[in-house]
Write a protein that binds this DNA or RNA. Structure first.
Lengths: 178, 178
DNA sequence: GGATATTAGTTTCATATGAAACTTGTTGCC
DNA sequence: GGCAACAAGTTTCATATGAAACTAATATCC
């Protein structure tokens, strides 16, 4: 910010010499543009919203609803809790998505005979059909996004995200499904 | 998954035999756990929420409020639009965060004399103090997260995220601040 | 066996969100 | 100048969200 002009002071301050991230006094001054959590958040939201727009327009599905469909399609019958675990959605969100999808007939619900608190959720034929139609659209967006990455980049990214996930597990509360 | 019972049907369908990802008819069956947009979303939310908890508890700040403080601290006086551009928040969110922070005296607002529609926002002394206190906490979380990555991993991640941002620019609507 | 703690899922309630309408001010065009 | 198009912010309104309270079923402990 002090850097508007061209002529250099004789004595430059640290800020001038080092990129902000490497200053010593206040070693890391929190610049959103270099702050990983922020960068992830912005990128992630842009992408998620782009995809959400697709299935919202065509099928009137919200993000939680689509996630429920995706995960039921992939992991067969699951309890609401199972869905929550696999999607990181809290149980309230899952409950509401279930209700909506039941009303629309896109999923079916039974009660687990062994534990009658538990529900057993699965896609209906129509739900499966929607999943079969939306999935390629979502995958296409991913594909186009990733097109700028080399094979090696993709492997790196995959590996790095796994490391970050594991790192988050160790000191952020709330572990993955397991 | 279908595997709860004991007696099996004589004729198993493809789903039974092959894991979904390897079916031939539908080559990429959208598995959330390998789907980049989803992985980014989960990781990003976990991290953001962990950080948000810190400043919410200590200072009663919401995410948009903290972002406003962070960006004003880093990029000096900005209009509401300027803030929106730099944070990817829409103008409604910015407007509300501004209102809240004004009430709490954490920012100050003036009118741009050159264009009286525009506001000029900057941190108050108190706002700057809060920023100075929260920033290290946020950075510490980032630091601990990134501790599992080698120097090279970090560079790779930085480079890859930039590529993905650029890729998103080319075919998702809504470009960065500029 | 039965009181107590726990878990699955739902409902309540207060708050957050953003699209669209609106207000105020500026720019462009004649 | 004056009027149409546009931009900055705010407000409205309908919907989304999640913490906490709640209901119902199961597990644990004595």
């Amino acid at each position: 910010m002090t850097r508007t002009g061209r002529s250099r002071n004789v004595v430059a301050d640290e800020t001038t010499i080092f990129p902000a991230r490497f200053r010593l006094d206040q070693p890391e001054p929190l610049d959103l543009e270099t702050f990983l959590p922020y960068r992830l958040s912005v990128l992630s939201n842009r992408i998620s919203n782009a995809i959400a727009r697709v299935y919202a327009k065509r099928f009137g599905l919200s993000i939680p609803e689509w996630r429920l469909i995706a995960v039921l399609g992939r992991f067969g019958p699951l309890s609401a809790n199972g869905v929550a675990g696999r999607t990181y959605m809290d149980k309230v969100r899952v409950s509401r998505a279930v209700q909506r999808l039941l009303e629309r007939g896109l999923i079916e619900r039974a009660t687990d005979a062994a534990d009658r608190r538990r529900s057993i959720l699965k896609l209906s034929t129509e739900g499966a059909a929607i999943r079969a139609e939306v999935a390629p659209l979502a995958l296409d967006i991913e594909k186009r996004l990733m097109a700028v990455l080399s094979r090696e980049d993709r492997d790196d990214l995959d590996r790095i995200l796994k490391l970050l996930d594991a790192s988050a597990d160790t000191f952020l509360e709330g572990k993955p499904p397991g």
